[in-house]
Design a binder for these strands. Structure first.
Length: 124
DNA sequence: GCATTGACTAGGG
DNA sequence: GCCCTAGCCAATG
C-alpha cells in the first residue's frame, strides 16, 4: 500500500492532457477527501516538474497556487485548451477530470460536462 | 513527539 | 462575483 504522498503523486501523473482536477478530487483519489490541503503540501514539497501538477487546480476552477510561477501554470493551462481569466478557469466545468472514471473497474458515467454530482458531502 | 506551515474547501458578508 | 473567516489533513522543522 503506497503512502498518501505516493498515491497523490500517482493520481496527478494520471491526469490526461487537456484535463484538470481539483485538490479535493486528488485527495479523494488518494483516500482522503478532506486532505486537499495536504495534497498541496505534497506537491510543493515534492516539486515534481515531471508531474502535471499544473493540471491540479483549486475548487470553483480557481488556479490555486504554483509555487512562485503561478503565471506559468496559467500559461500551461491555456496551452491545454483551457480558458483562464485572471485566476479563474471559465470552462473548468467542462475540463474537470474525475479520477474514479479513469479506473478500468469504474463504469462509464464520467460526464465531463456534468459534474453536478457532489461526491464529497464535506461536512464541517 | 509537539508545534507550525501551506499550491485547500465551504460558508458567509 | 470576490474577499474574509473557520476548519481539516498531512508533511516538515
Amino acid at each position: 500500500m503506497a503512502s498518501f504522498t505516493s498515491r497523490v503523486l500517482s493520481v496527478v501523473g494520471r491526469i490526461p492532457v487537456g484535463r484538470v482536477a481539483t485538490y479535493g478530487d486528488v485527495a479523494e483519489a488518494a483516500g482522503h477527501p478532506r486532505a486537499a490541503r495536504a495534497v498541496g503540501n505534497i506537491m510543493r514539497t515534492s516539486g515534481r516538474p515531471d508531474l502535471p501538477c499544473h493540471r491540479v487546480v483549486a475548487a470553483a476552477g480557481r488556479l490555486g497556487g504554483y509555487g512562485g510561477n503561478l503565471e506559468l501554470k496559467r500559461a500551461l493551462l491555456r496551452a491545454e485548451g483551457l480558458h483562464v481569466t485572471g485566476s479563474t478557469i471559465r470552462n473548468f466545468r467542462l475540463r474537470r477530470w474525475a479520477f474514479r472514471c479513469a479506473r478500468p473497474s469504474a463504469r462509464s458515467g464520467q460526464g465531463p460536462g456534468r459534474p453536478g454530482k457532489h461526491k464529497g458531502p464535506k461536512l464541517r
